[in-house]
């Protein structure tokens, strides 16, 4: 009986991801290297922004992944709450530091881009502020995982925090929009062809985004494996105590 849930078995998960990991990592490297080189060296400079525009190839994918990592944690938390698959909870735990790092990358590259463009490193612009708040949510989520010893308790509490946090993160997003209309340009990407950035910048950007997604998947696989093994180690230690 083939079902997606069979990968919820830790052993099966490790075996499968072991096979996938080299491929995903290699693809991530290829996509990132080609995308970044294409973007940095083979695109024209913007008539207004000069060469600073090229930071878009780090900034936009990182910002996308910062949000998508939280989405993935939300889905994984829901799976844990509903189906009690341990791998799911551990995958959510594994994704959090990656998402937090992506948020930092987005904030830092944004600051570096913003300085020459807007003349300031930081502005309480809605998008920037929302990302800072998202970063705080990541911090709280990781701190709660770290603070609780019992793995199942920690998984339950963090997944409920993730659910509640998602609602409040969304609320904050709209609250912040209400609070200050900002400098940040509109979305760089959009399905509407008229809206998004010029094709010259668009295609390398897509490659970079693909690279970031693959990188994220590879890191989540790797870190989830580590979490599973750490969990297994703790279980074995507990088993030792049980034997006495």
């Amino acid at each position: 009986m083939a079902s997606i849930w069979e990968y919820a078995n830790p052993k099966k998960f490790i075996a499968t991801t072991d096979k996938l990991l080299p491929w995903v990592s290699a693809l991530a490297v290829v996509a990132l290297v080609s995308g970044l080189i294409w973007g940095f060296f083979f695109t024209p400079e913007d008539y207004k922004q000069g060469s600073t525009v090229k930071i878009i190839y780090l900034h936009v994918p990182a910002a996308l992944m910062a949000i998508n990592a939280w989405m993935m944690m939300l889905v994984a938390s829901l799976v844990w709450i509903v189906r009690r698959h341990h791998v799911s909870a551990l995958a959510a735990r594994a994704a959090a530091p990656i998402g937090a790092t992506m948020t930092v990358i987005a904030l830092v590259t944004g600051a570096i881009w913003g300085q020459p463009m807007w003349g300031t490193w930081w502005e309480w612009d809605p998008r920037l502020t929302s990302f800072l708040i998202l970063f705080l949510f990541y911090l709280g989520y990781m701190a709660l995982w770290a603070a609780i010893e019992n793995d199942d308790t920690a998984a339950d509490l963090t997944s409920i925090l993730c659910l509640v946090g998602s609602v409040f993160a969304l609320l904050s997003r709209y609250a912040v929009n209400f609070w200050n209309q900002g400098l940040h340009q509109g979305a760089s990407l959009s399905l509407d062809k008229e809206e998004h950035v010029n094709d010259v910048y668009y295609y390398p950007l897509l490659v970079c985004i693909a690279g970031f997604i693959l990188l994220f998947v590879a890191l989540v696989f790797l870190r989830t494996q580590t979490e599973i093994r750490a969990r297994r180690t703790r279980a074995l230690l507990a088993r030792e105590r049980l034997g006495q």
Binding site: N9, P10, K11, V87, R232, L242
Partner: peptide
């Protein structure tokens, strides 16, 4: 008293 499960029983519960 609970007996420890078999070592190769590496299922969802880890134990």
């Amino acid at each position: 008293k609970a007996k420890a499960p078999a070592l190769d029983d590496f299922d969802g519960a880890f134990l």
